[in-house]
Amino acid sequence: MTDVKFIIRTADQTRKAEVEMDRTNQGADIVQAAVDNWALPTDTDYSLVNVTTGKALVPSQLLDENYVRPGDILEVQPVLVAG
């Protein structure tokens, strides 16, 4: 098991942290950690985007080297439903 250190932030950039997580974690785990630690609204759904590579992560995606590299910035974006 290897860890990867990256930056996670909210879409409005009011919350930002450097975190180190095991690569066996999934995208959904990061979102859940952000919701829990930052007390993000729980009546909203979130997706995860690696803004450094310009690629969204599917919820089941592991933090594989191909998707998250050390120092990358991952953004937790609300899934917008109003129209």
Partner: peptide, 18 residues
């Protein structure tokens, strides 16, 4: 494309398939 109307920041990201 995800855009913030207050800061003007936006991100464009590829959407992967699963």
């Amino acid at each position: 494309i995800f855009a913030d109307s207050i800061t003007g920041a936006s991100t464009a990201s590829d959407l992967p398939s699963r």
